[in-house]
Design a protein around this nucleic acid. Structure first.
Lengths: 345, 345
DNA sequence: CTGAAAGCGCTAACAT
DNA sequence: ATGTTAGCGCTTTCAG
């Protein structure tokens, strides 16, 4: 095995405690002692064994992040932000992906690496409130994403209804009337996409347009291919929409591909709005208008929540902070040169 | 603190060892004893403390993955593959990003969470052989990526020279002659992009074309914006190229954007080939021809290398396995309908 | 300001 | 087949 405190102590001719003091930068150590010990440390190439420290302290300095998949740039970009936010609190990040499988989400929420992670940030898709209520694992948990839960956990998410309304409002403002919603899930309340769908309904109604439920398209998943397939479905029908509000950017990008392949123009024939503002949406041939959630804020709030809970701050009520978002207007909704216009919301 | 083995033992009226046996599924335990202990475990809600186990065993079951940034889908997709490969060996993955900063790469290679990770998979950009030789950390390290090192560590990378040649060969086969290389770094040998650039030179020479070094464009980084800027530089000059081989897909995508903005057509005016086969390249308006490294193989080989080293398999020589890659031909190099053609290489 | 000893929760010898 | 005991390397009282 490696070099331990004991070895260093022996070498320096002092006690273990003294070495520990030096390693941990404790106050009351004479400079002479410090240099002596430091020398022994250097000579032996001592590295503190964090595992031992963790066992002793009951803390590891590791938090876990579990998202559906890193293939979705939104989650990849978010992961980067979480790593940075965690680093500012001297935390390291363990990652896992759930593939959006309830089983995997359950597993992760129940006890991912029991006792090795201090807390968990989870972005669930199929987990239910009951699952969360049945949770026995005691490590703090913070939820991310669009799903709503009646469970006693902090939940970080932008105001999805309002954001969706802003997107639809923009579309209506551009003169569109038949606005499809692409990327819904099946009928149950509380399903993913529920809030964005609600925003779609509310804003249409507010604009005096009766929401046409036949324009709500269910997709199998949340990827580009799902958006492409969903769009094809829409275009195969008689009365095509003049705009599409997609659940996320990947679906929007898939939809744009289908639209283009069919020889239709964006936004002239069909306008498109996405959700996430992944970097890719700034480089599609027709750049994509989208809702841009403040990923840094989301990451920061999530990590802060964990850090507070770990500091033992008693959390009376689960908190639901609302990070900001912007509507970023690009070519996919504005004929002519890109306005590059952004609305803070 | 939580429930420990001792608590369970007490509750079940047996010794600690017996509980440990049950928890670890040891052979010789009577069924009666097993159920009795299991009941106590359930009643108390016991979860083994992995930290303690790790301390005892000197292993944590955690490996680290450090890449430049997760904003590049190639690394995000690779991370997903690494997580899966690691899971098959019951390993969990700790992640960090280096932002391509030598300082950060150095820090990570030196001792990322000393003793809490069993091994490290690192994809360096600016690290030098000397840095690696000076490494004191004893945890196994596996290198990823295009850089070459004369250091005693396993290195997993496709044959970048051959892959680049395949890309350029394809371009030449399509009738292109003035083929630019987009995404080089400054002159030093061994710099990133060195191998792909060499492939470009070799293949051109083999095709009887004298490599025009003025067509080698240095970019600031590896993102879409760098590709866009580099392409603009190329097009601002008198004699424009008829094709571009980009260091990676992001640069290629940025280049395509500039080409389109200038009113030029792809591939008729300028053909484009990328490198990485990120999913996005299948959905750009003009889909992107690219080199597709076998990410699953890369991830698997990297994790396998670590696992072997951890199993104590004496590694005489550093190994350089060569995972496969394919040339995926798409619209950006083939006029008319997409051939969808793929060449395994 | 420094030393001695206890113990975090677990596993691995060794006993029985 | 089950029990006892000794650490893994560290931090933390408690003395000195």
């Amino acid at each position: 095995m490696g070099v331990s405190l004991k070895d260093v102590a022996q070498r320096a001719g002092v006690s273990i405690k003294t070495v520990s003091n030096v390693v941990n930068n404790y106050q009351h150590v004479t400079p002479a002692m410090r240099t002596k010990v430091q020398q022994a440390i250097d000579e032996l190439g001592y590295r503190p064994n964090l595992t031992a420290r963790h066992l002793r302290k009951g803390r590891t300095g590791i938090i876990a992040l579990a998202v559906p998949e890193f293939g979705n740039p939104y989650f990849a970009e978010l992961a980067g932000a979480v790593i940075d936010a965690a680093a500012r609190h001297d935390y390291t990040v363990l990652v896992d992906h759930t593939a959006g499988l309830r089983e995997k989400e359950l597993l992760v929420s129940q006890g991912f690496r029991s006792h090795v992670i201090d807390g968990l940030i989870l972005s669930p898709i199929h987990l239910e409130t009951e699952d969360l209520m049945a949770r026995t694992e005691t490590a703090p948990l913070v939820l991310l994403g669009e799903r709503e839960y009646e469970a006693p956990y902090d939940h970080i998410a932008i105001d999805n209804v309002a954001a969706a309304r802003a997107a639809v409002c923009h579309l209506v403002g551009q003169g569109n009337r038949r606005i499809a919603f692409l990327g819904s899930r099946t009928g149950r309340e509380r399903q993913p996409a529920h809030l964005r769908l609600r925003g779609w309904r509310e804003e249409l109604a507010a604009a005096g347009i009766t929401p046409d439920e036949s324009l709500v398209v269910v997709t199998d998943g949340y990827g580009r291919e799902d958006g492409a397939a969903g769009m094809a479905q829409l275009l195969d029908r008689a009365d095509r929409p003049d705009a599409v509000f997609a659940y996320n950017d990947l679906i929007a990008i898939g939809a744009m591909r289908t639209i283009t392949e069919r020889g239709l123009r964006i936004p002239d024939d069909i306008a498109v709005v996405g959700f996430d503002d992944i970097e890719e949406s700034r480089y599609t041939t027709t750049t994509l208008t989208t809702i841009a959630p403040d990923k840094e804020a989301i990451a920061r709030l999530a990590v802060d929540s964990l850090v507070e809970q770990l500091a033992g701050t008693p959390v009376a009520e689960p908190r639901r902070p609302r990070p900001g978002y912007r509507l970023v207007v690009r070519e996919s909704t504005t004929p002519g040169p890109d306005s590059g216009h952004t609305e803070d919301l």
